[in-house]
Each structure stands twice: as C-alpha cells, then as structure tokens.
Design a protein around this nucleic acid. Structure first.
Lengths: 216, 216
DNA sequence: GCCAATAAATGAACATGTTCATTTATGCAA
DNA sequence: TTGCATAAATGAACATGTTCATTTATTGGC
C-alpha cells in the first residue's frame, strides 16, 4: 500500500491532482471542438459539460465564466504559437522581415479559424478578471518584450536609427499588428499572404516615416 | 376632431411615427442613464424597459439585441463628437497637431466615462449585425475619410512628404489611435492630457520614421 | 364614422450563463 | 484501518437575454 508513496513517472503528484488534470484536459478538448464547430456564441456551456462528461457546475471550477473557457482553450495554443514565432525570426535580416517572420505563425494559425479568432479578439478586450487572464496577458507581454529586443538589436547594429524608447516602439508595432489583424479578419476569407503583405506595408511606412525628412 | 389632420409644426408625420420617436427617445434615455450608473454588464434589459416605461419586448423592436442598445445610445453621441472633432482642426497647423486636435473631443468625452468606453470598445469589435451597426460604421468611416483629407492636404503643401496611399496612411493613424485608446483606458484613471500626449508621441514617431534615413 | 389591413407593443415562455448548498472523493493523522 | 478535514464535483435553482403568438393602436379607403 505504499503506492501513494512511490513517485513513479506519472504520479509524483496525488490522485486529486491527476483527476483534476484529466478533467481539465477533457474540458479543453470539448470546448475547443465545439467552439470550432459552432463558434463561441453558438456553443452552450451545457454542451461543453456534456461532451466533456462532467457536470455543468464543474466547468466553473476550472474557468471563471464562459469567456474564461475560451482562454482555457487558447492559452495552450498561444504558448505553442509563441514558441513557434520566436523560433522563426531570422538573425541579421532586415528589421521588417524579422517582425513579419515573428507574426507569421499567428497568421498561419488564425487563417485556419477566422471565426474563432474574431471571437477571441472581441473577448480579449479588457480581459483581466478571469482565472485564465494572467497567463494570457503574460503571453502577450512576452511577445512585446521580444519585439523590444529586436528593436534594440536593430538599433545597435544600425538597421534602425531611432532615438525613441524601444519599449514604446515595440508597443506601437504590436498595436499596428493588432489593428491590421482586425482589418484582415473583417474580410471574407482572410489569406495568410494577404495579411502578412498588409502588415509589411504598414511596417515599411513606419520605418520610412511620413517625412519631410529633415523637418526639425 | 380634425386634429389628426392638422399638420402642425410637430406633426408633418403621422401619429405612428411620433409615437415611435418618443418611445425611442425614452429608451435611449433610460439605457444611457443605466449604463452610466451600473455599467453595461450590470444593467439588465428588464431595468431599461421598466425605466423607459415600455414592455420588455418593445426594446427589441428598436434594437436587435442588448449590444445594439449600446449603439442606439452611442450613435447620437458619436455624431455630436464627430461634428465637434471636425470643427476643432486648426488649418495650416503641423500635421500631428491637426490629428491630436481631431481626437481631442473624443478623449475629453471618454475620460468622463472610462467604464462605458471600455464596454463600447469591446462590443464594437466585429460589430456588423445589429440594426444600429451601419450607422455606427459609417460614422467611423467618415472619420477615417477626414483623416485622409488631412493627409492629402499635408502632402500637397509639404508638411508631409510620403509617397504612400493617403487612405492607407489614414487607416494606420486610426489604428494607432485605437490601440493608444485601449492602452489609455487600461489604466486606472485615464486623464485627457495624458492620453493625448501618448497619442502625440506615437504620431511623432510615425512621422519621423524609425530610420535609418537614407537606407534605400 | 366604420372597417379591413398593417404596424407596433406586449409579456409569458424559453434558452442559456452562473451560483451555491449539498454530496462525493481524497488526503492525512492517529 | 478508521475518521476527520479539506478539496472537488454536482445539478437544481436562479438570473437574464431573446423570441413570438397574441393583443392593441394606427392608417387609408369606403
């Protein structure tokens, strides 16, 4: 009966935590499948509970509310996308190329599920209350932080030459990315190349400036 | 009783339309007051109906759903703000000054009701279905169109010198405005001067560019 | 003025998100 | 092993957005 004391590979933690992890996983799977099939608004919490094989109330021990359920699902994907994104940045390439490469995996993924992404973009606005919110917001911050590093590197080796705060530049670029993303998703059938081309266009303008060149 | 036939100054239109206009007005007043007092989520449609003195179902002959009610309220204010905004643009001033002046009235108004504005920003995301949506979207388009004119004028007289499409520039500026607005409203007690200063900062960067200056 | 046609208003019924008192499962000490 | 303490799960009850068959009001033609 020492089996609760044997730390085998699957159970360094207790039964309770293993049950929770499994249940959380079932809920994530069910919610993801349904959000994909029927959209966020078209999915009911009862359906999610039924498909996950748990009681209705159980959902709300894993997420604060329905919106939080959306991020319970998305947070895992955001982590994966971010790893992917950070991995695809070419070194010593032009700055705009680096930014476009960074956002490439996001566009690839979002193009597959424009409906889901639209729901996400609506729900993430001033999303701070849910249990899943901190993890989501940290993810975004780490993307902005990475952009800031890219700016700093580019300024250091002369690919950029702005005297402005790299953090501010990074926030501007992230803001432009978001507004381009919204415009892209407002269209009928958003294609990855089209979206990235539009993003590159605004980045080029940001880098070139609106002139006149020596107006100070 | 020919009084229904007398077209007095208030009634060139029929009884039916007058009733509707009055009812719509009462609903707008009630919704506005409640959204201000208790926020969008904190207000129930039943309360709005009760305060407006109409039955619950009546609301939904004036708005498609609760979200639409938010824009039934906001559309009038948007029109007023836009008139105000267009009227405060100084001629022949530096381009950035003109843009900051244009958005000034919006910041003034939003600073008074940050909660309401946050709700608005969430709900306007991909808002296309409601009866009130077309009017709202037309309002935004006319703001972007005005910015585009400002860009064209500025390029024409040399205050700006970009070869890029003025429409695209206008959309970029509007996008930057929106993301700055969100950042501003994410703070605790958004102040107008602070918000406008942040907006000006990003505009200056956009105009100056990230350099290097003669990289092509 | 009366009547049929049409528009608007109504609120009970329904659908769905959320809460919470109760029940069940797990961990831990004796 | 037993029993208590704590965590988790449960689903009925509730709150609130939305629909729609029915009722009421308005209009235009006779």
């Amino acid at each position: 009966m020492a089996d609760t004391d044997i730390p085998d590979s699957d159970a360094t933690v207790g039964q309770r935590e293993r049950n929770k992890a499994e249940k959380r996983h079932r809920i994530e799977e069910a919610a993801l499948a349904l959000f994909r099939e029927k959209g966020y608004d078209g999915t009911t919490t009862r359906e999610i509970a039924r498909r996950a094989g748990v009681a209705l109330g159980t959902l709300f021990t894993y997420a604060s509310d329905k919106r939080d359920l959306l991020f319970l699902v998305y947070n895992d994907r955001q982590d994966a996308l971010r790893r992917d994104a950070f991995g695809s940045i070419p070194e010593d390439a032009p700055f705009a190329d680096q930014i476009v490469a960074l956002f490439g995996p996001f566009y690839t993924h979002f193009a597959k599920e424009p409906g889901f992404t639209r729901d996400l973009l609506r729900e993430l606005t001033f999303y701070t209350d849910g249990v899943q919110a901190p993890r989501f917001q940290e993810g975004r911050l780490s993307i902005v932080a990475r952009i800031r590093e890219l700016v700093e590197d580019a300024v250091a080796d002369g690919r950029l030459s702005t005297p402005e705060d790299p953090r501010l530049i990074a926030e501007m670029i992230f803001g432009l990315y978001q507004s381009e993303l919204r415009r892209w998703l407002a269209g009928d059938k958003p294609s990855k190349p089209g979206g990235l081309a539009a993003l590159r266009r605004v980045l080029d303008i940001l880098i070139a400036g609106l002139g006149p060149r020596d107006a100070d």
